[in-house]
């Protein structure tokens, strides 16, 4: 259904506050992942050295990752989007089924599609696990040795999974300029919204 001519061509998707949360989290995550790579991958470790400094950067960037999220909770729009990400309706099941079977059929989605919802939930849990295991390794007096060894194990393997998932997240963004524009400017084309998020009932602004 083509929009009537008097309706604006773009619709509001994210507020400035939400974009700030995303951008700050993204930078912290990037620093955290880059410093992790310099600690873990031998060629990078040999190139960079300076182990104490890199450890410090990794610890603090990781510790601060949840902070933008927590500050974002004062934003009503941010909390409303969290609710949208949390709840899965029947259309989300249909979206997932269609995506997993790589069907061409319709993939109904609200403001966020089921893939984005799964990503958000999984990532939130994963970040908390990384935070917990990271703190166990950082403050070695917190727990007995066997916990620390376990924390190292979980931290290392989950880091590998996170690298794959984050690469997927960035890959999806690179593949969709309009989605990127939405996160950069806050608004998206009406046609894009209707195509990608047909069930999203946005207000015109």
């Amino acid at each position: 259904m083509p929009p009537p001519p008097e309706r604006p061509a773009r619709v509001r998707r994210f507020t400035a506050g939400q974009r700030w949360v995303h951008r700050t989290t993204a930078w912290l995550a990037l620093v955290c992942v880059a410093s992790a790579a310099c600690l873990y991958l031998p060629p990078l470790a040999e190139l960079v050295g300076r182990r104490r400094l890199v450890v410090l950067v990794h610890e603090w960037s990781g510790l601060l990752i949840p902070l933008p999220f927590l500050l974002g909770l004062v934003s009503r729009a941010f909390r409303a989007d969290l609710r949208r990400l949390n709840r899965f309706g029947p259309h989300d099941r249909q979206w997932l089924r269609s995506a997993l079977r790589r069907e061409r059929g319709p993939r109904p989605a609200g403001k966020f599609n089921a893939g984005q919802k799964v990503y958000a939930g999984w990532l939130a849990g994963a970040v908390l696990v990384m935070l917990g295991t990271g703190l166990l390794m950082w403050f070695t007096g917190l727990a007995p040795l066997v916990w620390r060894t376990g924390a190292t194990f979980v931290h290392d393997w989950l880091a590998l999974a996170l690298a794959v998932v984050l690469a997927g997240h960035i890959g999806k963004a690179l593949a969709d300029p309009e989605a990127r524009r939405g996160m950069r400017t806050g608004s998206v084309e009406r046609g894009w919204a209707a195509r990608e998020h047909p069930l999203w009932e946005h207000s015109d602004r």
């Binding site: 949208r84 259309h91 609200g110 919802k117």
Partner: peptide
């Protein structure tokens, strides 16, 4: 339909 349904995000 947005924001309704099972809290799958929280379960994740």
């Amino acid at each position: 339909p947005d924001g309704r349904g099972a809290p799958v995000g929280r379960r994740l």
